[in-house]
Nucleic acid binder design. Structure first.
Lengths: 203, 203
DNA sequence: ACCTGAACACCGTTCAAGT
DNA sequence: ACCTGAACACCGTTCAAGT
């Protein structure tokens, strides 16, 4: 387990992220990254032990890209700002964002984000012993929502396909007027966040 | 776009699921599936247009495996039973379950599951025009939770690594007693579901 | 100290051919 | 109607060598 070089890691991760953003995750090969950086594929193995570690680095990079949150805001406003920050990162990097679920990050950036969420929950009045669970609940929902959005699970085309296919099932029939209309995902995200706050801060 | 054969599709999907369960998603190659079925890799292309379609079929299979829910139960109990069903499917097929996010399914099984969730939400008293959003909210949370669990995001080892790394951040310090203890994911899932019902059915 | 070249054991998929 | 064989253009990664 030899020591890894670190100097060009940011440059390599930039190249990898650019490839994933432009051409998708399937196009993200060690060879493609090396080409973009201007080295041989094998040079990358001086910086990352293997492709999995490079993908972990990419998740860390996404967390480092989270927009900072105004510390003047109250707890609830900070949580909302962070939720929108997650969603923006997902929309900017739709191919990479879903990796957040499968590659739990423990980088300094990841821990800093967790700490900000903990602090916001504490400021909302969540009891200390409930904060870790509420953090998992909130981040799970927000990451799941953003992943669904960027992966097409909430797309209008999937919705109308389901509406068509379910036309003779009872609940689909009753709900037909609401299943295939236009969708405003911005508004739905906000409505869901408002509901989420009712869990976090029972009045 | 020629017509695909269907007869041996279930047999092929069984083989694929077995490989993913036993050896993970990386081991799930067309060649490995063909080997297990006892045919040449190219024979699979008579049943699936490409590997992506085979993976879509796998997601459909998972939805078909969802345990049926007792129709005698009330709406809230049925929702709880379906949530536990999702989680059980995830625990049985940890490598494949996360694909549910990225491969929105429109098979008859998928639509049948949606209809059951719609009906349960209606029976809980959710207004018709809110049911589709609540279905997305609930399934997103449940799938995100199950994906987190099977992907290691909730693992004790990740938690203690984060606890160690965040030891000098303010909220981590204050919450230290609660960050690295033993975890009961069964209990946490139930607690989260109870909170989720407070969104679905405001008293 | 950092990078390259050649090689190995794999991939998904196309096309033409076999029964 | 269903399957196979050979081939193509890729993969991630090891090892030994180059500067």
């Amino acid at each position: 387990m030899r020591k890894l070089k670190t100097e060009r890691r940011p440059e390599i991760l930039d190249a990898a992220l650019a490839i994933a953003d432009e051409r998708g995750l399937d196009a993200l090969s060690m060879r493609a990254v090396a080409d973009r950086v201007g080295v041989t594929p094998m040079a990358l193995y001086g910086y990352f032990r293997n492709k999995d570690e490079l993908l972990d680095g990419l998740v860390g990079r996404l967390l480092g890209d989270m927009p900072p949150v105004d510390p003047e805001l109250d707890g609830r406003e900070r949580l909302g700002a962070m939720a929108h920050g997650f969603r923006q990162v997902a929309l900017r990097h739709p191919a990479v964002f879903p990796l957040m679920f499968s590659r739990p990050s423990v980088t300094p950036d990841a821990v800093r984000v967790s700490d900000a969420v903990y602090q916001a929950l504490l400021d909302c009045g969540v009891p200390d012993d409930q904060v870790p669970r509420m953090e998992r609940l909130a981040t799970t929902f927000i990451m799941g929502w953003a992943t669904s959005e960027v992966s097409g699970r909430f797309s209008a085309s999937a919705a109308s396909a389901r509406a068509r296919r379910g036309a003779d099932l009872p609940a689909h029939q009753r709900l037909a007027p609401y299943l295939d209309g236009p969708r405003d995902l911005d508004a739905e995200f906000d409505a869901d966040l408002a509901d989420l706050f009712r869990i976090i801060r029972p009045e």
